[in-house]
Design a protein around this nucleic acid. Structure first.
Lengths: 349, 349
DNA sequence: TCTCGTTATGACATCGGTGTCATTTTTATT
DNA sequence: AATAAAAATGACACCGATGTCATAACGAGA
């Protein structure tokens, strides 16, 4: 590999002068600069960040840990991994714009390896660290976030680590509010597993929307139709819909915990000969385009702003690195809005 | 940041001895080793890869370029990005196992930036480079792959660069073969955009399956139902299905260019009151679980082995880096098998 | 106890850049 | 033309690890 010394020799100047040319330092004479540039091009010289960062103590690297792999089986193209990708892309976008380089690691299937990955990051002297979760949850990183600038994306912890999460409550509330304003007063809600953070926040949003619109909360309309430990929740959904349809006053609209659940619901209702949205309105959550736009009628849902979360997490980290943010340790959690995406699966009545 | 000198001082030994302990070098006395270990722990010392790699000329880094972002709009959670994630995961898995660290960069929306990313990789002295495409295609990297070990995943070029791609022809052939063996002799095929590599290879597989089973090829049954420059190909699919159903001898099974197309077809057929699979059988391509397993009836499809492609690409790169592979420059392209995933959307007749 | 052969440890240079400070031009001023 | 001020360049040390070689400590046998 050619070094700065080779360039210096070829150009007939000192290494330091080459360094000055590289960094656009003042002052370098025009003729000298040209000679050096020529030598650099001729030799195909590329400076070494290793040497550079050793002197400057700045690696220009950002560590990124994602837990995607551990959440889906090896053989399948499962959709669970998608959020990570979008968040990572958002992060990448911002980091690239700011000249940082991403060091990405996946936890694989063993949770214990996270500390190993972080160790590797430390060896590379990353300037900061972002942990990306595949769904909104609470986590517990195996490091003191004091020792290294850390931002949590799509998750949070109990140590007041800076974190960025979606606004699940507001998202669900906005959706239900809009559904009610379309004339629906019997709005059912098929929730995700109660162990998920989003479930509680969205349920709260659901209730809040009912309350603000003067609609009574009916526990009969709220059912869990998703269990994390189940491979296939189809039976849960069938049971739930059977229950809802058997009610004295059945719902005219059903909100699903996510788009995938809505997709299954479409199939189930179709078998029963129930038309969407004429006979019943459906909404999802996630704005998982492969489903929402592919379905007929297209599915009304709430957009989970993964790219935004990633971008915001990256910005927060850059702020921490710059060190200009030492005054506001109380605003550790940033909440990103989740807009409603209105399509044709909800009927105005 | 604490250095090896701090540790040496704390342990009362020379830096070199600390180095020996770190690398498990012989010979180090038992007492000395303990002292040093204690000092390392006490100071929370983590060695610097920058310094290490400067001396050894080995960075332990692998560069990874993906073009995902440039292929879908910013605001949407489009599914197009999914393949990249799986390939990256496969790569990550293998690289992690071999102790390499991944440097990941996304080309963003400007194709020109690839060379900039590669430049950054060179500055970090990556030991090799993997380019990941979001779908099977031909590309043209802006570097001589001679100057740096390179492997292309899910794509290939005209310079005999080592590459790993899915077996599109065999995948489609196996699927159609199985469909025919279920009793279907009128098998339609709705293809993707003809500009895609996969389209030609799969069409060939389709024809090959017909031929081997003694079924005549009927051009009337093969229609393009997807254009890259179209936002929404629904009308294309509707026209295609209308054409197929108007034939004197309509198809009993329809193979779609991908699962997303099949998803739309489900909706269209449902509106027409045509039952799947009783009245017509459907197959997809990709094994995009969110769709294939969510649909009712579950969609028969061909699995695109993205993880496998990633893993294989990683293995190929490691071989290149090891330099033990200089004898076989002719086997530049590795083809990974795409197995048929049989579900309920094809009826035996 | 002394020598010899291991075994354990340290001194020093080096990897490729850059900060500091000194030195040599060049340009401007009188 | 002499001189000061400014601009351009270079010498050298240093960042943190490790390879090379030298030296010190140790243990065994005479």
């Amino acid at each position: 590999m050619t070094t700065i010394y080779n360039v210096a020799e070829a150009a007939g100047v000192s290494p330091k002068t080459v360094s000055r040319v590289l960094n656009n330092d003042v002052p370098v004479g025009e003729k000298t600069r040209k000679k050096v540039d020529a030598a650099i091009t001729a030799l195909g010289y590329v400076p070494s960040t290793a040497a550079r960062s050793m002197r400057s103590n700045k690696s220009g690297l950002i560590g990124l840990v994602t837990g995607a792999i551990s959440h889906f089986s090896d053989a399948s193209n499962a959709p669970t991994g998608l959020p990570d990708l979008f968040i990572v892309q958002g992060i990448q976008k911002v980091m690239q714009a700011s000249g940082k380089t991403l060091l990405i690691a996946d936890t694989g299937d063993s949770a214990t390896s996270v500390s190993h990955l972080i160790r590797t990051f430390q060896e590379h002297r990353v300037e900061g660290l972002i942990y990306v979760a595949n769904y909104h949850k609470q986590i517990d990183l195996p490091i003191a976030s004091k020792s290294i600038h850390t931002v949590l994306a799509n998750c949070f912890d109990t140590n007041h680590t800076t974190s960025v999460v979606p606004n699940d409550q507001m998202g669900q509330k906005s959706l239900v509010d809009k559904v009610i304003k379309e004339g629906h007063s019997r709005v059912a809600y098929l929730t995700l597993d109660p162990s998920m953070v989003a479930t509680h926040q969205r349920l709260e949003g659901y209730q809040q929307a009912l309350h603000e619109n003067g609609v009574a909360y009916d526990p009969e309309l709220v059912l869990c139709a998703d269990k994390l430990d189940l491979i296939d929740n189809e039976k849960l959904i069938i049971d739930a819909i059977d229950h809802l349809l058997s009610l004295a006053s059945p719902p005219t609209a059903i909100c699903c915990g996510n788009d995938k659940m809505a997709l299954k619901l479409y199939g189930i209702l179709r078998v029963k000969g129930i038309r969407i949205p004429e006979q019943i309105s459906i909404a999802g959550y996630d704005n998982y385009l492969a489903i929402t736009e592919g379905l007929y009628p297209a599915l009304t849902t709430v957009h989970l702003p993964y790219q935004e979360i990633g971008q915001e997490a990256a910005r927060q980290l850059l702020k921490l690195i710059d060190g200009k943010d030492q005054k506001a340790p109380n605003s550790a959690i940033t909440i990103v809005d989740s807009p409603v995406i209105w399509r044709q699966s909800i009927l105005k009545i």
